[in-house]
Design a binder for these strands. Structure first.
Lengths: 231, 231
DNA sequence: TTTTTTAATTGTCACAACAACACTTACATT
DNA sequence: AATGTAAGTGTTGTTGTGACAATTAAAAAA
């Protein structure tokens, strides 16, 4: 009888796409599914919405249940809804994404679910449309990073200029002249030089910098135009 | 028994947020609900997902059913999922948005559903969380317009520079120096000057321009930096 | 100790883009 | 012929740009 009988009532999933940066490489966190179907296949961290739960809340809960990671601010990036995207049952999925400093959350990461970091260019086959989700997420990351200085969240408290450049090059799948890059980066007034060097990358060592929290007059324009041409 | 019994199976709606530009003003298309509950209240054009239908498809269908508008490319901008956003029943909604030239679609617009264009600053109370959707949509529009020359889609085939400036000022809720604005706009190589004037706005009349479709080396950088400071 | 090696750091230059600013022009109306 | 109105245009001092190569710090090798 109901007016709404012709309308679907699908399961609603959230999937979490977590980017990290380690050893000069952009990485994505994936887990190996414990459940049938598709047991032992790789996927994003996903789960279904419960009663009285918003998608934002579900995303945080699911991420914690599957990885142990807590207190990570994720942003909604897209919703996937093709009718056959999950062959078993009609399911739509809302994708959330975040950037984290891998080393900072290493301790929290629960390996019970076989969560592993994969280099973005070496991602294994994923279930459903999760590969498309990663692609959409990388694209989103570019646009976001072009407009805001968010990439620093992927680095630790302190970092070197060559490290930041490497990260930008990974994200934008491109390369930049190091003289111009550092000129723009320092011109942004975002960074504060420390009296300490990172010797891991070279004999000379590179000075560490930290985000200058005082500064409220930073110039992101300079980095914007650099990134823009790569969108 | 089912493993999935604790998971919700909500209705899934799509809501369409259509921006237009007319009489130097940015507008939004709204309809008056014909159905209970909330009969006669204003809302975005919304409807539910049907079997085998993706959200993209549903959005196009719903827009056509409620307004007669067809062939409009919409983009998914966000999904709303608070558990009590629809007091009657658990419903999540995927919002789609587009920009159209009002005059171009005027004929198609079916007024059976009392679709009306409202100035963005004079929007009436809307049902559910639709006001929040409009706010999110305006924000999305800014970001999108800052990165790409999409605002021209809101204008007709031909338009004047003062018209474009007015549109940019509406979208970015800001004002720009007309000398600098026109320098940047023309410097973009996006426009081609016509030998014809629009006399409606002034005695002198303003020259019409059209989008130069040949040009493949346009410079959007110039407009980017203008818009960026307003994000 | 000296030399070698490696990557970080720094500098220049010609050119383009920037913000801030005010006057002139075209046209219709009076 | 004078007036009113909005469109259109130009300058300047300053800053940002891309393209380019030499120097420096420090460890490792000779």
């Amino acid at each position: 009888m109901s007016q709404t009988s012709k309308y679907i009532r699908p399961l609603v999933a959230v999937d979490c796409l977590i980017f990290g940066f380690e050893n000069q490489t952009l990485k994505v966190l994936l887990i190996k599914r414990k459940l049938q179907p598709y047991q032992n296949e790789w996927s994003l961290m996903g789960g279904f919405l419960k009663d009285k739960e918003s998608a934002d809340e579900a995303a945080s809960r699911v991420l914690k249940e599957l990885t142990g990671l807590e207190g990570i601010f994720m942003e909604q990036i897209a919703t996937f809804s093709k009718f056959d995207r999950d062959p078993a049952e009609r399911t739509i999925s809302i994708v959330y994404s975040s950037l984290i400093d891998i080393s900072k959350f290493e301790a929290q990461l629960n390996h019970a679910y076989e969560a592993h970091w994969f280099k973005v260019d070496e991602i294994p086959a994923l279930i459903f449309d999760h590969e498309e989700m990663v692609a959409v997420g990388r694209d989103y990351l570019k646009k976001k990073a072009a407009l805001q200085p968010i990439l620093f969240e992927l680095l630790g408290e302190k970092f070197t200029i060559p490290q930041i450049q490497q990260l930008y090059e990974e994200v934008f799948e491109s390369s930049f002249d190091k003289r111009n890059f550092s000129r723009k980066l320092l011109g942004s007034k975002l960074l504060h030089k420390l009296n300490e060097k990172d010797k891991s990358g070279s004999k000379k060592g590179a000075f560490y910098y930290e985000l200058d929290k005082q500064t409220n007059h930073y110039n992101f324009n300079t980095l914007l135009t650099l990134a823009y041409s790569q969108l």
